[in-house]
């Protein structure tokens, strides 16, 4: 009872506090009526079916991308290479899609997903392997690998894999309309959303009900104990990294197969970095990732309306996101302290 109350009340308090702070900034600096701004934000993010679809579309890549941080985090690793895995995943998917050409679409789609996941997985597994065998800090190596991945993608897109027809937006050849992954029936949101939700559910079930999940929990809790129990820590580290990278690679694949239709620099627009944020905010819990991503998607979906109606700069929503995140993180401290503690025997 007490826990359930806190789970609702603490984030609600944090959101309320952020709204107040943001309102203050709007009223004092931008001279905008905060109530009007909040009303518009609601309209832009959740006010209609159109807005909901807008929000969900923006949330979709974040869900998959955040798993790249959340999965290895179970073992105590801090991986921030999401963007790199996503970008290379997209590149691999496009290469596969173009190479397979006229094969049956389903086959091409499966091949694209597999190659995207494979390359993304390998990329982050590299960070895991370097940590395990060479002792290289995985946070810095995954960040470096991201910059290298983006450079590689740009090199291939503007060099060896460039379609001369792509003129002013250098891109690989198109994968073809037949091979694109469409939208979920009944809504104008691509399949990336479903992939993300399913992936989170799968991860949750794996972590909760399998020996693997338990082993990972042990390693995350105390690697020394885990080694004494005879667990092969290195294998789990590399596996978790690979799985996380594969999720980000799949996010890149979906960008190519459902949105862009080809690989180009639009893959590197920051979904990976936003994914890191989502993972930390969700405390790496796979089921919390989905609502956090939707919250983030909603805020960015509402940004356009704030720009158009109130003439606020695009950065207004970034400020709000920042305030909300800091407030929610700081509010963690309130758990167990919100209600006066009952006498415990």
């Amino acid at each position: 009872m007490r826990q359930a109350f806190e789970r609702i009340a603490v984030p609600a308090l944090a959101l309320l506090a952020s709204a107040l702070l943001f309102a203050l900034l709007l009223a004092a600096y931008a001279q905008v009526d905060p109530f009007e701004a909040f009303e518009l934000m609601y309209e832009g993010a959740f006010g209609s079916w159109f807005s909901w679809q807008n929000t969900l579309t923006r949330a979709a890549p974040l869900i998959l991308a955040s798993l790249c941080t959340a999965l290895p985090a179970r073992l105590g690793l801090v991986i921030i290479g999401n963007e790199g895995a996503l970008v290379l995943g997209g590149l691999a998917a496009a290469a596969a899609g173009v190479a397979m050409g006229r094969a049956p679409p389903l086959l091409v789609q499966v091949a694209m997903c597999l190659s995207g996941m494979l390359l993304g997985g390998l990329w982050i597994a590299l960070a895991g392997a370097l940590r395990q065998w060479r002792g290289v800090n995985e946070t810095i190596s995954s960040l470096l690998l991201t910059y290298i991945a983006i450079a590689l993608m740009n090199h291939f897109v503007e060099g060896p894999l460039r379609d001369p027809e792509s003129l002013n937006k250098p891109s690989t050849a198109a994968i073809g309309d037949a091979n694109t992954i469409g939208t979920i029936p009944g809504m104008d949101v691509h399949w990336g959303l479903a992939f993300g939700v399913v992936a989170c559910l799968l991860v949750y079930l794996l972590q909760r009900f399998t020996t693997w999940g338990f082993a990972m929990q042990v390693i995350g809790g105390n690697p020394k104990t885990a080694r004494m129990m005879g667990l092969d820590v290195g294998r789990y580290v590399i596996l978790a990294c690979a799985a996380g990278g594969a999720a980000a690679g799949l996010a890149g694949t979906v960008e190519v197969a459902a949105v862009l239709g080809r690989a180009n620099a639009s893959l590197a627009v920051g979904y990976g970095y936003a994914g890191i944020l989502v993972a930390f905010l969700a405390r790496h819990h796979p089921l919390a990732i989905v609502p956090v991503a939707i919250l983030l998607g909603g805020i960015s979906a509402s940004g356009g309306l704030l720009q158009r109606r109130l003439d606020l700069p695009d950065a207004a929503v970034v400020v709000l996101q920042g305030i909300i995140f800091v407030a929610i993180l700081a509010s963690e401290t309130l758990y167990g302290r919100l209600l006066p503690r009952k006498q415990e025997s």
Partner: peptide, 19 residues
């Protein structure tokens, strides 16, 4: 009506639809 800093992704599709 104007929107700035819209990336060349699904974001621009949504901005157009929203407008």
């Amino acid at each position: 009506v104007e929107e700035e800093k819209v990336p060349e992704t699904v974001a621009v599709e949504k901005s157009m639809e929203s407008m």
